[in-house]
Write a protein that binds this DNA or RNA. Structure first.
Lengths: 197, 197
DNA sequence: CCTGTAATATTACGACCATCAGCCAATTAG
DNA sequence: CTAATTGGCTGATGGTCGTAATATTACAGG
């Protein structure tokens, strides 16, 4: 048995998922058809259902893969490097190569539970990694803080991408960096910002 | 002439746009068909093109209308009220009645220039309103600060909506409130006046 | 030369955006 | 008091594209 090397189908599946990552982030979930996704991988639509149960199945797998890749990329970077890279002009102008959350988050929110579950698991892993580096002694608090900063970055990137005014869009990124670093720095100090309750 | 009063067509157009606001936020732009949007307004698909040049035209008009409505709603609220309302569980669980940015931002980013322009204009108006209340003496700095906090809120709401874990999603909202108020408070501290409000 | 796998090609069927001929009620003209 | 006109709408229709399923072909290795 195993006329084709056992890794052949696996490799094809991986290729589909990786290509789908770029395509989905570029054109959106509803904006990407199965035939196009398969063509990106050099295949035709008919082969799709030998690899995935449904489009939704592919989306969930792709979201998981994208977050896994993002997690690996961040593992070698400091938090400040992550922030500055994330809120860079290059990242804003590279939707298809960038953060899956920024590209797909409100479509994921509208998706089925399986997609949301894949998103949740992948995102929590990223957050936990970052939180461990921020404050290894207080993981609970660091986790909340980290996810808050991450949400800030996602929203900032999305706003910057949606604005038609380039100058304003750049300013938004800059402000986002300031805010993210301020929140990370504030966490390391013990003093709460006294002004409001 | 005019079997209908002069304001009849205008009223129909408004009804379409208002209904489209809910539908687009609920199902997304790509997820909402023209026939469905018209049915929501009690009409059939054929009448659509007497009111709009294209679906894109409706989307741009709807985005503008949604932001106008949001701006009016915020005009009677303090910044802290806005933050707490925006990042409330009720708002998270009411996508179709809530913030258009949180529901549609990454689809808007993929949309045509006319849609992005409508978004930019409407959003800037909201930001300028809020900035004027935050620091009337330094509008330039307040504007940057306000848009930064707004982006934080949008990202936080989206993340909370996309998470499959309810408890975690609630924590994200709470953390978002803390962060938003901290950023507003930090800005406020520059001026000797009192805390938020 | 078989056997089973992976892919292609084709098909079904519905939804999509957009167009257009025609209906219907009310106003206006003759 | 008809008859023509008009505005807003319905209903049907293209033509394309969507997901999913199926029949068929190419091919690898014992």
């Amino acid at each position: 048995m195993a006329r084709y090397g056992k890794e052949h189908k696996q490799a094809t599946r991986r290729r589909i998922i990786e290509m789908a990552g770029s395509r989905l982030k570029r054109d959106g979930i509803d904006g990407s058809g199965v035939a196009t996704l398969m063509a990106d991988a050099g295949l035709t639509n008919g082969a799709f259902y030998a690899h995935f149960d449904s489009k939704e199945d592919l989306v969930a797998s792709t979201v998981a893969d994208q977050l896994r890749e993002q997690r690996e990329r961040y593992s070698g970077q400091s938090l400040e490097e992550i922030v500055r890279g994330y809120l860079s002009i290059q990242h804003r102008d590279d939707t298809e190569g960038g953060c899956p959350s920024a590209a797909l988050l409100d479509e994921i929110a509208r998706s089925s539970d399986s997609v949301k579950r894949a998103y949740t698991d992948g995102q929590v892993a990223i957050i936990d990694d970052a939180a461990a580096r921020l404050a290894p002694d207080d993981p609970q608090s660091a986790r909340a803080q980290t996810i808050g900063v991450f949400a800030l970055m996602v929203g900032t990137l999305q706003v910057s991408r949606a604005l038609a005014d380039r100058r304003l869009a750049d300013d938004v990124l800059e402000q986002g960096i300031q805010n993210a670093l301020a929140l990370l720095g504030a966490e390391q100090r013990v003093s709460p910002s006294s002004c409001l309750k």
